[in-house]
Design a protein around this nucleic acid. Sequence first.
DNA 1: TTCTGGCACTCACCACCGCTGAGTGCCAGC
DNA 2: GCTGGCACTCAGCGGTGGTGAGTGCCAGAA
Lengths: 338, 338
Amino acid sequence: MLSERRLEVLRAIVQDYVGTEEPVGSKALTERHNLRVSPATVRNDMAALEEEGYIAQPHTSAGRVPTDKGYRLFVDKLAGVKPLSAAERRAIQGFLEASVDLDDVVGRTVRLLAQLTRQVAVVQYPSLTRSTVRHVELLALAPARLMLVLITDTGRVEQRMVDCPGPIGETSVADLRARLNSRVVGQRFAEVPQLVQDLPEAFDLDDRGAVSAVLATLLETLVEDTEERLMIGGTANLTRFGHDFPLTIRPVLEALEEQVVLLKLLGEATDSGMTVRIGHENAHEGLNSTSVVSVGYGSGGEAVAKLGVVGPTRMDYPGTMGAVRAVARYVGQILAES
Amino acid sequence: MLSERRLEVLRAIVQDYVGTEEPVGSKALTERHNLRVSPATVRNDMAALEEEGYIAQPHTSAGRVPTDKGYRLFVDKLAGVKPLSAAERRAIQGFLEASVDLDDVVGRTVRLLAQLTRQVAVVQYPSLTRSTVRHVELLALAPARLMLVLITDTGRVEQRMVDCPGPIGETSVADLRARLNSRVVGQRFAEVPQLVQDLPEAFDLDDRGAVSAVLATLLETLVEDTEERLMIGGTANLTRFGHDFPLTIRPVLEALEEQVVLLKLLGEATDSGMTVRIGHENAHEGLNSTSVVSVGYGSGGEAVAKLGVVGPTRMDYPGTMGAVRAVARYVGQILAES
DNA sequence: TTCTGGCACTCACCACCGCTGAGTGCCAGC
DNA sequence: GCTGGCACTCAGCGGTGGTGAGTGCCAGAA
């Protein structure tokens, strides 16, 4: 177990390193933080911290740098979440309130997060599977070809073509539309399958094929379409990373381009509360020198999607966490209102 | 006027420089391209080309590098468009044909372009204003609240809420829906306003307010919604740019984040045929060291949107132009089929 | 005229060198 | 358990000299 003072030293190292981006030495530490001990003592503490793996030396005769493990301890035990100032919060709210539709909300959120944290922001669109149905629309484009449009409570619209085995009459389409809506409007997606299960039975034999096709497409859209969209922004902030550019930035950009990777990244995070993944804690190799701070957001009490930022492990954790949490909160409010 | 051989020398310089990324000298030139003259002669030609501003020296006693003006001449006069191999074309078509909806088409196109050209790809969503109407749907969400859904021939869906001055009956809604569709389906957006102008007159006085509200929203969607979306990809390719990283890459990433800039970039391009903007020809400062190759694509004969790539001025123009043209062509086909 | 070979010159790049200073580990003493 | 002192390490920096690719110019050949 580390003594109180050693933790204090670790905290000081993290803070200084985040600020200066340079390895921090014992002398500088004692000067900038009033630990009331001498550099020599701090050196002993540092040796102990290094022994335990919380800090490391880039090379002999250089200062110390926190390791992933060091940041982890810092985040878990030593640092809080820095709340935003009232002015900042008002600004956020104002900026988000001006949104006109879902795309706009997500777009603004990404820009906001990127700007506040000066890092790369990632915002997931509200997930279909946790939303509820606002409306289902069915249009006959051709005798045996329908278009299915699904509108969610978060304002998202999904459309799919349905090719029916045979032609289906206008009245049947209208009937199906009405029945579908009366059953599923206001329901959560997860409930939908059992609610529509017996629908074909209500129709003439002639139409059952078409009805089944429509239902199949609908369920497919709900279930299979876990291909959740997301938006990223602030990639230009990557250029602030370090001096050893191409090597660091390249794999990160590559990782950010793969939606699958990002979705998994956000998905891994625990459902409630904020998640911080530091360096090698990230499964994806390209992100081994970055940290990811993510949190769920939702229109009600419950999270419908996640958002977060990706930045260097050497980031201002309290500030970043504060910004992420605040933004998530306001986005939730905006979604609930619309 | 430059002699034939000098043009030949310029072409050789461009080709070598694009290949090696290093200033090219007179000796290397004569060895790699069989210009059947001596290095000394080439040196004289180079001096002339430099005089005219087509090439430049990074510093004395270094080889020559093409200037923007040099690339321009190369593109206009010296290089053709390199067609893709049959195998590549089949691969493209196969990849795009697997698309399931518009988002998917655009997403695949971006990835394809980025991969083929190893540069940053930009694809604009088919523009609303040049599309035709496939269907208009009208849903009563509440007595005086309708949802208007507009579906375009390119598969894009736009939805808007309509708040009516007073309640409107289900039958009136159905009537309006039917009349609207019979008038506008298959029409180009530009035609719609005059086609629906007199619609309110066909309704009872009670409903005219609501009808007008719907029409107003519809027209607004058509006209005002020039907020065109686009998708970019392949930003990781920026890391291949040069060694002088942060300075080059930063402004490019920043420019790419601003949709407005990109839309303007694509918008500036001539409507038909391929456009190449080289270095300082790009209005946006951040893109002064990049070239943009863009071309329109469309489902019919006519362009509905544009796509292109952004890369270093030192790019393989013939190859890039070939890839861009081929992809645009196939995307057009796919859109026409769906 | 146009091209060529020769020659002197320039200069970026690299490897090497030695210095400096921040930072360390260790130890004896308070 | 803390502190001051001391010897040691080593990245970074600036200066130095050599190397070679590349140039411009010129006189002579085609």
